[in-house]
Simulated scan of single mutants.
Amino acid sequence: MPFIDYYKILGIDKKASEAEIKKAYRKMARIYHPDLNPNDKEAEKKFKEINEANEVLSNPKNRKKYDQYGENWQYADQYSKQNQQQQHYRKQYGNQAGFESGSHDFSDFFESMFGGGFSGSQFRGKPQFKGQDYNAELQLDIKDVYQTHKRTLTINNKNIRLTIPAGVEDGQVIKISGHGGPGSQGGPNGDLYLSFSISNTTQFKRDNSNLFTTVDLDLYTAVLGGETTIPTFDGKVKVKVAPGTQNGTQIRLSGKGFPVYKKEGHFGDLLISYNVILPKNLSKKEIELFTELSKLAKHEH
């Protein structure tokens, strides 16, 4: 299999930061996404390479291995362990165990890993390696995660049917076992790490399972009390307003917030801050009444 330069695939420098890698991946993925290039085999191949490059370079540990071992980065841990074993047996047995003096390059290592090379029984057979872990990002709207729902993702040309739990948060990462790359020599598949990018264009600010919003309240209801209609995430409700409600007063509606992650039927609270609106363009009669109220207030004090 020819070597693929992941940095070149994403069009970035080897010193690129994590943010630059993420930005480059998103840019390239948009260009070559299968939905935008139907029946284009070259674009499909390029999109697969872009995802593969991102899966490696966006993971600091895997990126370090890739920078050191190149195309053989997945076997870095085994190579390091094998090298330690070689050094141990050299010290203990010299060349009696079938070791050559001097250094061993990657090709020697892989020859020994897959059946050739060493005569010692501890090196017989073919070790099993877990497949490569994949990383993917799913972009959703906050309304999408208000209820549990199912969604089909296409990862490396494979459709994966997932249940997205209500209450998933922006930036949250979940592990989906066995949906990564295939293992080698009969080893298990890798895992899929799915991160969520959740946009929010609603009037509600989210903090875990609680929601926050500001609601305008007319002066007369604030002073005299009464009722007002409050918007919630799933509809409107009427609430009572206490007489003398001040600007900035906050009330809490229990259970009217966002779903609690993986706790079916549990919701956070909705916290509402009142913004008392002063009347404008008063009529002559209103001015007279406010003037009278002002005189009464001064007289009482």
Score class of each variant (00 low, 15 high):
Met1Ile: 01
Phe3His: 11
Tyr7Ser: 01
Ile12Asn: 02
Asp13His: 13
Lys14Phe: 03
Ala19Val: 15
Lys22His: 14
Lys23Ile: 09
Ala24Ser: 13
Ala29Ile: 11
Arg30Phe: 04
Ile31Glu: 09
Tyr32Gln: 03
Asp35Thr: 11
Asp35Gln: 13
Asp35Met: 12
Asp35Phe: 07
Asn37Arg: 15
Pro38Gly: 07
Lys45Leu: 05
Lys48Ala: 13
Glu49Asp: 08
Glu52Gly: 09
Glu55Gly: 14
Val56Lys: 01
Leu57Pro: 01
Pro60Tyr: 03
Asn62His: 11
Lys65Ala: 09
Gly70Arg: 08
Glu71Trp: 10
Glu71Met: 12
Tyr75Gln: 08
Ala76His: 04
Gln82Arg: 10
Gln84Arg: 12
Gln84Glu: 15
Gln87Lys: 14
Gln96Val: 01
Gly98Tyr: 09
Ser103Asn: 08
Asp108Ser: 12
Phe110Cys: 02
Glu111Phe: 04
Phe114Cys: 02
Gly116Gln: 07
Gly116Val: 00
Gly120Gln: 09
Ser121Asp: 15
Gly131Ser: 02
Ile142Tyr: 04
Arg151Thr: 10
Thr154Lys: 14
Ile160Met: 05
Ile160Ser: 03
Arg161Gln: 14
Leu162Pro: 01
Thr163Glu: 12
Ile164Ala: 07
Pro165Cys: 06
Gly171Arg: 10
Gly171Lys: 07
Val173Phe: 06
Gly180Tyr: 00
Gly180Pro: 02
Pro182Ser: 08
Ser195Ala: 15
Ile198Leu: 05
Ser199Leu: 14
Gln203Asp: 14
Leu211Asn: 03
Phe212Ser: 06
Thr213Trp: 00
Asp216Thr: 06
Tyr220Trp: 13
Ile230Ser: 00
Lys238Glu: 12
Pro243Glu: 10
Gly244Ser: 08
Gln246Ala: 13
Ile251Met: 05
Ile251Cys: 02
Lys256Pro: 00
Glu264Ser: 12
Glu264Leu: 09
Asp269Gln: 06
Leu270Lys: 00
Ser273Cys: 08
Tyr274Val: 00
Leu278Arg: 12
Lys280Phe: 09
Leu282Glu: 05
Lys284Asp: 12
Leu289Asn: 15
Lys295Met: 11
Glu300Gly: 00
